[in-house]
Design a protein around this nucleic acid. Structure first.
Length: 111
DNA sequence: ATAATGACTTTCA
DNA sequence: TTGAAAGCCATTA
């Protein structure tokens, strides 16, 4: 393993912890990127959570669809991802308001 | 080493 | 409540 002097850990370790947290989000609920980052011990790294999820293979056991942004909406991105995400969440009983947001007070994950 | 990016978040008018 | 701006940080170029 290459030594990256003065770092607490490598990105692989961080990614692993992020995915561990995401894997813990219960069906029918959603957590925010920032929340996942904090719970993974990586405060202020919401963007990294998005990057890690974006790197998941098409078929993955990780419930990536249960992660939304702080506004309670599905973060836009090119491709069919957003549509698929909403479908998966609705399939679990998560309700979307007409403005495309979900009520985090109701469906947010409280660990 | 500098600059641009982006599945983000917080602040402010 | 809303949109713009600024803040943030690892990754890429």
């Amino acid at each position: 393993m290459p030594r990256t002097r003065h770092h607490r850990e490598d990105s692989a370790g961080a990614a692993r912890r992020i995915l561990d947290v995401v894997s813990t989000i219960p069906s029918g609920h959603a957590a925010t990127y920032g929340q996942v980052a904090r719970m993974a011990g990586l405060p202020r790294r919401a963007r990294m959570v998005g990057a890690v999820l974006g790197g998941l293979p098409d078929i993955s056991p990780v419930p990536w669809h249960r992660v939304v942004n702080a506004r309670g909406t599905i973060s836009p991105r090119p491709g069919s991802g957003p549509r698929e995400q909403r479908a998966l969440l609705e399939r679990e009983g998560v309700v979307f308001e007409p403005d495309g947001r979900i009520d985090l007070d109701r469906f947010g994950w409280e660990a």
